[in-house]
Computed example of a mutant assay.
Amino acid sequence: MTDTPNVTDDRPSVLVPLEVLEGETLPDGVGELLENAHVILLGYHVLPDQTPPEQARLQFEDRAQRKLREFEKTLTDVGATVERRLVFTHSEQQTLNRILAEHDCHAVLVPNACEPPEDVLVAVRGTVGVDRIGRLVAGLFAGTGVTVTLYHGLESTETIEDAETFLDGIADRLVDRGVALDSIEQLVDEADGGVDRIATVAEEYDAVVMGESDPSVVTFVFGMPSKQVAERFLGPVLVVQRSHDAIE
């Protein structure tokens, strides 16, 4: 079932997947983090192979929808727009990939609780996805007073000057999209910017934005670096997705 609002503004779309029948909830602070987003609120439940989705829907839909409506209200009360989806599935990966493709989501949220965000770490590696990172970060945080720290760990062939030039280009994109220059900071790390290092740096921040570095979207989100960061970091992680066309 889908509830589609009249979306009149150009908000970045963020997928928020929750296993509602397994007790997964919308953590505190996520509403404030996503107040400027268009949220695809996905409630899903993975079924045993022998259970028909239609049977599960008859049995569990009312309970699941009640929970989703509560989460939807939390988001809309702070200003987000929301599309609500409920899926009973035999394949978590196929379902999430399908929803991501249908909505061409800019990012997926790995939800953890947070305070209303004041400082956000944006970890960037290569140039793939930089446009979508800029769109997401500016869409969520332009004009909010949130400090955005662009973080890049040096790769083997890079110099500090290379990294600074790279981050300057991203900062210019953010300014062009309405982010105040004095709210952007830059952090070049001479250590490799891998998962463990990002998690360590992220301890000082309220939330993390990081790019998808694996073409397999769901494998990345739920089994690869972003999930590893979320397990080490108490705040939420936004994983910026490549456009659907780019991963086909």
Rank of each mutant, 00 (worst) to 15 (best):
M1T: 12
D3F: 11
T4E: 12
P5T: 04
N6P: 07
N6Q: 14
T8V: 14
T8I: 12
R11V: 00
L15H: 09
V16D: 00
P17R: 02
E22Q: 14
E22M: 03
V30T: 13
E35N: 05
N36V: 00
N36C: 05
N36S: 05
Y44W: 05
H45W: 08
V46R: 09
L47T: 08
P48A: 13
T51D: 00
D62E: 15
Q65R: 15
L68W: 11
E70V: 14
E72M: 01
T89I: 08
S91Y: 06
Q94A: 15
A101G: 12
H103C: 09
D104T: 07
A107K: 09
V108H: 10
N112P: 10
C114Y: 00
C114S: 13
A123N: 09
R125S: 14
G126Q: 04
G129M: 02
T144M: 03
T147K: 15
L150C: 08
L150T: 05
Y151H: 10
G153A: 11
S156A: 14
D162F: 07
G169Q: 10
L174F: 04
G178S: 06
D189G: 11
E190G: 06
A191V: 01
D192V: 06
R197V: 01
R197A: 08
A199I: 00
V201C: 08
Y205P: 01
E212P: 01
D214L: 11
D214S: 12
P215T: 05
V217W: 10
R232K: 15
L234Y: 01
P236Y: 02
V237K: 09
R242Y: 09
